[in-house]
């Protein structure tokens, strides 16, 4: 599929044009071109795919993943990885049911949930920077610990209710635009400004690109790295609240699969696992492609199992395209 947009330049005879004009465009905007192409093709096959209802539906599915993938991108930018995001999401959703279930508690729920996210991010960041634990293991461990605490707290099955406020955030719409999508875009814009326009963002790129340089120019890369994990934890907690409002029912596994989906989306969107490369917009486009694929499979009436298979193929193909380009 990716090859649809990537093939023509290989057949082109004018190699110079390919290298000076086409390749940079594909490298920078390939993911967006692919997203547009995927939507167009799906729309041509099944017109219902581009119906107002279905687009709104896909956007609502995108919102939680979109928020998580931005956090994941921050962590990957500084050469990290966060496997604990799904566990943070579920824990935050369980927190949401642990109060009275009335709107009066909504502010406390948000405060408590985000605190859990920040605390988890802080522990992840400290383990990675101060104890030199590999990000994979550090976040795997916090993921397991959180899961255990959650199970122990809920005795296996959460019983309370999510305040109606979250229900309306998760499912309601503002002039046809779902609230949770509005939230996602606000988060994306704010964090894009932080990443691409602020001194902090610049320090993140330097830290991820080359920690030695970072040290030489006086950047505390430990602090930058910890901040990235904290931002990721807070975003995951927020996404957990939104998802619990969207689904309406909370179990111990809200957000299951988000750790892998968010990593995959970020990598597809051009965030390099080696650190120092990637954008917020690219990561969001990666997440959008995952949602489009899942939705298209259902709209085409194909077996749902194909979602997983196609997703797997796209991951490997997309990731390999980025590797080849960087060489």
């Amino acid at each position: 599929m990716m090859s649809v947009s990537a093939m023509p330049e290989k057949d082109a005879t004018s190699g110079a044009f390919v290298h000076t004009k086409l390749m940079p465009i594909l490298t920078h905007y390939g993911i967006f071109l692919f997203l547009v192409l995927a939507i167009l093709v799906s729309g041509l096959i099944t017109p219902a795919f581009v119906s107002r209802d279905n687009i709104s539906n896909m956007l609502m599915q995108l919102a939680p993943l979109g928020i998580v993938v931005i956090g994941q991108a921050f962590v990957i930018l500084v050469r990290g990885l966060d496997l604990s995001v799904a566990s943070v999401m579920a824990t935050s959703a369980v927190v949401a049911t642990s109060f009275s279930g009335q709107n009066g508690d909504a502010a406390w729920v948000v405060l408590a949930a985000i605190s859990v996210g920040i605390a988890t991010g802080l522990i992840n960041g400290l383990l990675v920077t101060k104890r030199n634990v590999s990000p994979f293991l550090a976040t795997l461990a916090t993921m397991i610990v959180l899961q255990g605490l959650r199970f122990a707290w809920t005795q296996g099955a959460p019983s309370g209710n999510v305040p109606p406020f979250f229900r309306s955030i998760g499912t309601g719409a503002f002039y046809g635009v779902p609230y949770n999508v509005v939230i996602m875009f606000i988060v994306a814009i704010v964090l894009a400004i932080v990443l691409h326009r602020s001194a902090f963002g610049r320090r993140m790129y330097i830290t991820g690109g080359n920690p030695v340089t970072a040290k030489l120019v006086g950047i505390s890369s430990d602090r930058i790295t910890i901040a990235a994990y904290v931002i990721c934890g807070a975003l995951a907690a927020g996404a957990g609240l939104i998802l619990s409002g969207f689904v309406g029912v909370v179990d111990n596994f809200v957000g299951r699969g988000f750790e892998l989906d968010s990593i995959v989306a970020a990598v597809m969107g051009g965030v390099a696992l080696s650190g120092g490369r990637g954008t917020v917009a690219g990561a969001l486009a990666g997440a959008a492609i995952l949602v489009v694929i899942s939705n298209a499979v259902v709209m085409f009436g194909l077996p749902v199992q194909l979602q997983t298979i196609i997703k797997g193929v796209v991951i490997v193909v997309a990731a390999s395209l980025y590797v080849n380009r960087s060489h």
């Binding site: 994979f136 995959v264 199992q305 979602q307 997983t308 298979i309 797997g312 796209v314 590797v323």
Partner: peptide, 21 residues
């Protein structure tokens, strides 16, 4: 592909899981 094994096996794992389903 030269892609990190983490991503490669994540992808192939998804494919194999899909086939199992």
């Amino acid at each position: 592909t030269g892609v990190h094994p983490l991503i490669v096996t994540l992808g192939t794992g998804a494919i194999v899981q899909g086939v199992a389903l």
